[in-house]
Design a protein around this nucleic acid. Structure first.
Lengths: 157, 157
DNA sequence: CCATACTAGTTGCATATGCAACTATATAGG
DNA sequence: CCTATATAGTTGCATATGCAACTAGTATGG
């Protein structure tokens, strides 16, 4: 019955820091989505998967691992990869050592698309986020952020 | 044909600052969703709408304005508010001055639910985000963030 | 070697979302 | 006052997502 975890516990500053962070990022990502669509490209989560694949060894990952890197449940990974495959952006193959495992491997077409999408993505982030800060600040920023990740939160990355 | 907006343009620091920000927040929000579900509460976007309503004058907003505050297209606002209404969390009423307008007004039940959800929400954010920083840092952080909002991005807030 | 428990991935169903077409009101121009 | 155009909100349809049940392969323990 102690007055714990009640709304009053947070000062304005704290609350604002969090809400500001969420809103700012939502707006930014929203804008990225908008620009991608405008340019005729697919959604951000396609980009995320392609990016994870491209930066992985051999350009391939097991579906399960994709799900961990990107924030998606297995079900959605299965279907997202199906869609990517039907567009020729990735290819699927059995895992030789684990009969259950399926690898998704990014194709040249997939790499090309990712690169094109990145141009759009990068532009939005640069013009609305990066350009507001100098190197030193971005460094500080990154350090800030890393402290969050340092806790058990990032089971991946 | 100049080598502009190519991937190479960003240094590691810059890229990492952005990617870290996105991932950290995704993980955090994901965890909030998880905890809300575990506690038997509805999704975060219900919370967001309830929160906007409760902090608005008279606890009510026009659907259109909700859509601007929360990041949702009109279509979804209509239907989200319908769902909220069917749960008795908000009530709808015609706008007296604009025949097209519909107000959504948070009910006592809605306020109560929001408060309960906030406890869960707050806990996750406090334990995974706020507790990593001191007041001064949070202040800096907020200032950082505000620079993003300062640009045309926040048509609302 | 067989039974049990676990994990990877898939599929079906209910629900949520995005998009486009539609209704009704409001605003602007002749 | 009447037409043209824009805006608020709704609805229908296609698609995407979450959840639970299912299949197939793996690991453990007798």
């Amino acid at each position: 019955m102690k007055k714990k975890s009640s709304t009053a516990k947070w000062s304005e500053t704290e609350t604002q820091a969090w809400i500001g962070l969420v809103k700012a990022q939502q707006h930014l990502l929203d804008k990225v989505e908008e620009e991608l669509k405008k340019a005729g490209f697919p959604q951000l989560n396609w980009y995320d998967v392609l990016w994870e694949l491209e930066s992985a060894k051999d350009g391939s990952l097991r579906l399960n691992d994709i799900g961990k890197k990107v924030i998606l449940d297995k079900h959605n990974v299965t279907r997202l990869v199906q869609r990517l495959e039907s567009e020729g952006l990735v290819s699927r193959s059995q895992c030789p050592v684990d009969g259950r495992g399926i690898f998704a491997c990014i194709t040249d077409k997939g790499k090309k698309l990712r690169r094109q999408m990145w141009k759009v993505y990068e532009k939005v982030v640069r013009e609305n986020f990066l350009c507001k800060y100098n190197k030193k600040e971005l460094n500080e920023f990154r350090n800030f952020i890393e402290r969050i990740q340092a806790s058990g939160l990032s089971d991946s990355v």
